[in-house]
Write a protein that binds this DNA or RNA. Structure first.
Lengths: 213, 213
DNA sequence: TCAAAAGTGTTAATAGTACACCCATGA
DNA sequence: TCATGGGTGTACTATTAACACTTTTGA
């Protein structure tokens, strides 16, 4: 028997910051909140933790329901627990961030949920404390990309070095010297040339690379 | 009105990893769990989130109740949400780590709670997932001390450079060259000499430093 | 022929690492 | 006088930052 009876219980939600890379910018997937309070306001993708579901599993389920994607890079960011953060009822939210390839997700599902991509550096006002969540997650992936090849989750399977550099620049919010970038990335040994040439993005054509497994 | 009615609610606990620096080692404050399940097992300092209390405030309260300390360096680590993590009932735990000066805390309170310091690198088996929590927090402060002067929270107001170095070594788990350490720390501009001399720790006497504000 | 993106090395500055001896003191 | 911890500088290595021109091609 437990001695917990006298303690209060809380709704626990999960909010997901789903990052994608599109048009040379880091984007976040948002939608219109479908229920009160804040119905119609812009919101992160979220949902409630279920009875026999771990919080991690809950995050995976919510991501799958909105994007059709499984096996996605997703990490916990933090719990948000201010008393009045949700104006309707007390809800403690555990926040995750995910990195997805925008070419892979299920656009039909996204349409059903009214989901859309917005530029992370030009975020509209989101409901509750969701803007804070995005800022914190944005900072976090900036730190992580310095040490880990998380770009593999955001890019198509084959990509040019210019595109990879643009990704780094948009995540880090800085411009990077092309030669230094190429040297640094080749020293890291994350990626390999495929021999294929991309003719879309330039007249001359650029070598297509891919991440090693 | 909210649409949340149909969702389940959960107990939400807070667990605190309270780090201190004592006898040249990084320590964690633990105690014997005073209630079932796991009564008598070794446990982190914890408690339950209350109705009109933010999760952060809850962590502060719990820390104060066990140590008598307020205004302590404390950060959220993560939420732990596995379904079976607590064998009694479903409890989602939000974990914080705190750094305190072992000379300041209320030892009477600690005695009441059966609290004791254990070496972080020689942890006994703790209940539930508490060992995981400590490992994660230990790794976290290792990263943070590389960039932030968090040592100020663990040391007495005045300290020798040798003591500061021992602190860094015990947090980082490495030995550091004395000359390199002193140069690095003086370049960081965190600390200043007070002109006072400590005669306790050596015959010659060592300059006492303090952290700048 | 020219606009647009691809590709390519060198140098300088900075940060980090390795390493050994003398000093002051109390017991 | 000696054992103990305090205090100091230099040379080497690795990492990071700054910087500009040629190539290829389609329009």
């Amino acid at each position: 028997m437990t001695a917990y009876k006298s303690y209060p219980k809380f709704f626990v939600s999960v909010d997901c910051i789903i990052f994608g890379f599109k048009d040379g910018c880091l984007k976040v997937l948002i939608h219109q909140r479908p229920y009160e309070p804040g119905m119609g306001e812009l919101s992160l993708i979220g949902g409630f933790v279920q009875k026999n579901e771990s919080v991690d599993a809950s995050a995976k389920r919510i991501l799958r329901d909105f994007t059709g994607l499984d096996n996605v890079y997703m990490q916990q960011l933090a719990a948000f627990g201010e008393v009045e953060r949700d104006p309707g009822e007390r809800v403690i939210s555990v926040v995750y961030y995910a990195l997805i390839n925008v070419d892979n997700y299920d656009t039909q599902l996204a349409e059903i949920h009214n989901a859309k991509w917005v530029d992370v550096d030009d975020l509209p006002a989101l409901c509750f404390d969701h803007n804070d969540m995005v800022q914190k997650a944005r900072h976090m992936i900036g730190e992580i990309i310095k040490n880990e090849p998380i770009g593999s989750n955001l890019l198509p399977r084959y990509f040019t070095l210019s595109l990879l550099q643009t990704l780094y620049e948009s995540i880090l919010g800085t411009s990077i010297d092309k030669r230094n970038f190429r040297r640094a990335i080749s020293e890291k040994d994350y990626i390999q040339a495929t021999g294929m040439i991309d003719k879309e993005s330039s007249r001359r054509g650029a070598t297509l690379y891919r991440f090693k497994k």
